[in-house]
Nucleic acid binder design. Structure first.
Lengths: 108, 108
DNA sequence: ACAGAATGTAAGTGATAACTTACGGTAAGT
DNA sequence: ACTTACCGTAAGTTATCACTTACATTCTGT
């Protein structure tokens, strides 16, 4: 998929986000990632599959191992959505606070 | 809570994100929000509670109605995390691609 | 005071997701 | 060729989540 929805769903789970951040520090194998987390290796493998389907990570072969590394492109849709929403939210919030102040001052 | 984890979990659900974006366009009541979505009004109420606990929206009384509006502060932790991770990811990705090119060129 | 509107909450249900163990497949070393 | 290491996937279980209907509460207007 690799759209914003799949990226958000993938990053929502704390364990999976820990996997993502671990891979973000430096490219690592599945066993290395699982070694630093309180879950089994297959669990990490499944998390990596979700992250890969979301376009957040990619992998390459290294002998019998598989090295995973982050793909910044996967974060781009999320960044764009957040930036756009951020601007609108700031404006709307300013208008809302102004409205509340008017209500306070204008009451009988 | 109002940390990054709760914000991500709250925004992961498509319906709840639709509620969030609807409120983001302009402050609205619960009934107005539910009118534009294919779910019941109590469902919207529950989604708003999650968004409120995550610090993403706030509400004010308006007679018998409740007007909900976005709070940009709720998005701030998520923005900071994403910006920081974005920079690291770009560097790491550049190193990774460089390494892959070296492997290609350096093979016997 | 009463009727109606708007909302929050409780209870129950179906689906989904995260995790485990068990198994199959591929690559490296002896 | 055989063993070992590393990984992905299937099957099953448990918990959580999103949704619905039913009910309680608060506010407004008559």
């Amino acid at each position: 998929m690799a759209n914003m929805n799949s990226a958000l769903m993938a990053l929502a789970d704390p364990t999976r986000r820990a996997v993502f951040e671990c891979v973000g520090q430096s490219p690592r194998s599945v066993g290395e990632i699982a070694g630093g987390l309180p879950v089994s290796r297959p669990a990490v493998s499944q998390h990596l599959k979700v992250l890969k389907d979301a376009g957040l990570v990619r992998d390459r072969a290294d002998g019998a191992r598989r090295i995973y590394f982050v793909d910044p492109k996967g974060l781009e849709p999320l960044r764009e959505w957040l930036d756009r929403f951020w601007g609108d939210a700031l404006e709307a919030y300013a208008r809302e606070i102004e409205k509340q102040n008017q209500e306070k001052g204008g009451r009988s």
